[in-house]
Design a binder for these strands. Sequence first.
DNA 1: AACAAGGTTTAGTCATGGCTAAACTCCCAG
DNA 2: CTGGGAGTTTAGCCATGACTAAACCTTGTT
Lengths: 223, 223
Amino acid sequence: MLATTSSAVQDYLKGLYALGEGAGRTEPVTTTAIASQLSVSAASATNMLKKLDGMGLVDHIPYRGVQLTESGRKIALEVLRHHRLLETYLAEALGVPWDQVHAEAEVLEHHLSEELEERIAARLGNPTADPHGHPIPPRDLTSPPPPARTLWDTPDGEVATVGSVSDSDPEALRYLGELGVGPGTHARVNRRGPVGGPLFVAFDSTDEEQAISKELAEVIWVA
Amino acid sequence: MLATTSSAVQDYLKGLYALGEGAGRTEPVTTTAIASQLSVSAASATNMLKKLDGMGLVDHIPYRGVQLTESGRKIALEVLRHHRLLETYLAEALGVPWDQVHAEAEVLEHHLSEELEERIAARLGNPTADPHGHPIPPRDLTSPPPPARTLWDTPDGEVATVGSVSDSDPEALRYLGELGVGPGTHARVNRRGPVGGPLFVAFDSTDEEQAISKELAEVIWVA
DNA sequence: AACAAGGTTTAGTCATGGCTAAACTCCCAG
DNA sequence: CTGGGAGTTTAGCCATGACTAAACCTTGTT
């Protein structure tokens, strides 16, 4: 089923999932949104969406947006499972730093056979989360729950546990790695500066309070 | 350098290497030969050869054949290194049976980053041969020596050591696996039946003499 | 109710890498 | 030394998936 789709198709479905259900949104995804997600022109996106609709993988209503169908979602989750299993495997078995696994997995996810997927999952003991804390879709491809909120959206004074960290920003990941911040780290939000200023937060992995930018705080998702 | 070439280009260069230097031949490779190697029409091959010539990866003389240039050979060897490292890794680290590693490697070889290649090589202890006994081109991409002759071409009465086994025939590999025949196995050629009949050979991995077909005997290369 | 702006789609183009059919070369045999 | 057959190339086509420019909806605002 996956093998019969091109990398491009898989990328669109994965992107649509990330922008829709994966982010907990139920409204249709906009052409512009998926185009910018894939760094592609809006016209190119329209073309592909029409094609995906013809293949029964999405419902596309012109000028109104797209939504994944059941079969489209299955493929998206299959790709996501590949991606996250690969990230985990590269980190655990080959020692690839966690800020680099995303880029490697992004390419390999399209070329992993079911056979190899199964062997990798078994070798890892069927993990349920990747190194960034993102849930790995299980073999039956049921949808994992979407993340709750970011550290930035956590009120001052609260203590939250880091659930996951966005995997696509290597610089942020390297910095968080230095701080020892990752899934499971506890964070107390102390206060924030004015005008979108930094967030002052105490991680249990560091001695001192850290001042982190809004961008960085929005990359950290808490439970 | 490798990253700037498509899978198709890489496959042509790899195929040309296999048909030329990799088999110990120095004459130009014929359009028909490379076309059939890649299961592509002769017209398609001509097109691609013209393109490769324009890229400086081959010298193509119309109606006369093709030869790899220095840079074309480097890329072919890089792909071959990827292929054989992957075969070795899949077999050793993930337990993929030796008759299946070729198909997996065939796909992944085009998508392996230099970074990952290096990690895999290190993890394996920089091996010099893959599970089928084929030499893995070293990091500096010097050409490995071509194999000498097949078991079929070994005179009756001689004892030879298996050096390598063609990796692209899963059925043959499964059968040889059952017999315990692989790189390092000793084989005594006893006699052969008439009219291209079977070869009667005693492997040190089995008790009894085996009768094997010409096709099978030509898949086994000896030192 | 009409218009402008922003978002979306259509139209037409390009590159890659296949294909078939037809034309062309090369070389061997007579 | 010439004809024919095998091998090779050219010509013209298709699918995929990108692009820009232009036309087209939708919607919020007057």
